[in-house]
């Protein structure tokens, strides 16, 4: 990956005395970083290769080798046949829940962030503080209280009991608030108001078209959080037909004889589990491939330096 001699040649001429220790330091650097790289990357490589092998091949064969397309087809067939293509249902449910929640999030969060940044009203600081607090609380905190509430309302077990709580996304409001506070000039909005535009027109014609970058950012975060949420649907939904992919993986694991000697005969072994983990993560993986930069800007939004 890195060639020590080419690194050493970059050391400034004035430091030649130290070049021996410098090379040693660089070698140590490569080794430490290499170990961590293996830790982070090899499980993914393994996950990509495992579905192409048979279970016996994984146990007895050399690690990190490609099996065959036949074995990949067999893994897929076993997975697809599980509870009459439940995997497709689960991924479909995940998509339904994530996109519905995302739509409601965008419709509510963008106007809210805009108003918090550009208008003044009673309760504004309280609303912002509440948003900040809830945003920093782990989302698992509210799951059981939400279940108790939904149970009292008789809504538990319905798809809405998952979609509606997921669509409450204070982080999205906060990101939009920061975006409008820092980017959109108050003078621009004022000029439009002076020209007689109504508040709605100002928002619709000026603020909304400017919001595209922050909408993408909010969408990224909301989608990933909804898609990867396990606890909320696990608690709310009793029926396998309604499970999203994350909860479906739990069903697969329970059915697999790999880890439960008590479970009946099942074709769900290591290649099928790896394939399921991979397939159900692909949408988030795609988002991740394009969003490293967005992640930093999101996580650091609102932070100030002394």
């Amino acid at each position: 990956m890195t060639n020590p001699s080419s690194i050493a040649s970059r050391v400034p001429a004035g430091r030649n005395r130290a070049s021996a220790t410098s090379v040693a330091a660089r070698v140590a650097w490569v080794m430490v970083v290499g170990v961590f790289l293996c830790f982070f990357a090899l499980p993914i490589a393994w996950m990509l290769l495992a579905p192409t092998r048979s279970d016996a091949g994984i146990v007895h064969g050399a690690p990190f080798t490609f099996g065959s397309l036949d074995d990949l087809a067999a893994s897929w067939r076993h997975l697809y046949d599980f509870q009459s293509h439940a995997i497709v249902t689960w991924v479909g449910n995940s998509a339904l829940y994530s996109f519905s929640a995302l739509a409601i999030t965008l419709v509510t969060a963008v106007p809210a962030g805009y108003a918090l940044a550009t208008t003044r009203f009673r309760g504004r600081v309280a609303l912002l503080t509440a948003t900040l607090m809830v945003m920093l609380m782990p989302n698992a905190t509210l799951v059981l209280p939400l279940y108790l509430e939904m149970n009292a309302l008789g809504l538990d077990g319905s798809r809405l009991s998952v979609i509606l709580p997921l669509s409450f996304f204070p982080f999205g409001v906060y990101l939009t608030y920061i975006y409008y506070s820092t980017t959109v000039s108050g003078d621009l909005l004022d000029a439009a108001r002076m020209d007689g535009a109504s508040e709605w027109t100002v928002f619709r014609r000026i603020a909304l078209p400017l919001a595209r970058p922050v909408v993408a950012l909010v969408a990224f975060f909301s989608f990933v959080e909804s898609w990867n949420n396990f606890f909320l649907p696990f608690v709310m939904l009793p029926d396998s037909e309604q499970y999203p992919a994350q909860v479906g993986l739990n069903t697969l694991l329970t059915a697999s004889p790999m880890f439960n000697s008590s479970s009946g005969i099942s074709e769900i072994l290591r290649p099928e589990l790896a394939l399921a983990a991979l397939l159900t993560s692909i949408p988030v993986l795609i988002v991740f491939l394009f969003s490293q930069r967005a992640l930093v800007s999101g996580m650091t939004a609102g932070a100030t330096k002394e």
Binding site: I44, L278, L285, F288
Partner: peptide, 13 residues
């Protein structure tokens, strides 16, 4: 990148 597998997938793997 492994963050994409957060949740059930990572546990399975």
């Amino acid at each position: 990148l492994p963050g994409a597998f957060a949740g059930a997938s990572s546990v399975l793997i």
